[in-house]
Amino acid sequence: MDLPLIDRIWRVRGSLALEVRRTPRDAFARLDHLFRAVGTTFRIDGDTLAFSKKDPIAQDRMAIFNHGALWVEDDGQSAELRYDLNSPTLRLCFFLPFLFLGIAWLLKESRNPAFVFAGIFTVLYVVGRILEPWLIRSAFRKSLADAESVAETAPV
């Protein structure tokens, strides 16, 4: 299902412009360690790497994403790594304030804890939606910048 505006709640898209052109194989080799994690499977098909995760461990740097794709676009002049990642955790966190507002409405007594948690998850969602794309972009950048400089485009 294509939901280009709504899915920004839980999808992270972005790109890194590679100043030194590299083949997809080379770029994915540099990112390989991010996908060598428990519960992660990935497949490289031409210029695209597709991955999926099941029950990733806490310290997996891509733990909030359950599937996604990375690909290298090369127009002959420059190369760019683009990515599109799906995060059920962001989606869960977005809906949790509504869940706790629902609980407050349902229980009709001692509602303050439910309101407090609705507020906490609202703040957590905003923090996570900014922090996690920044962290994953940083991880990609560091991996790719190992022996080259990488210009970046902010994720959306």
């Binding site: 806490a58 609980i103 407050a104 804890p113 439910a114 948690f117 957590l124």
Partner: peptide
């Protein structure tokens, strides 16, 4: 961040 979200979900359920 993910651990904090999931943990606080359970804390919230406990308190409500």
């Amino acid at each position: 961040w993910k651990e904090l979200v999931t943990d606080l979900f359970y804390v919230g359920i406990s308190y409500t």
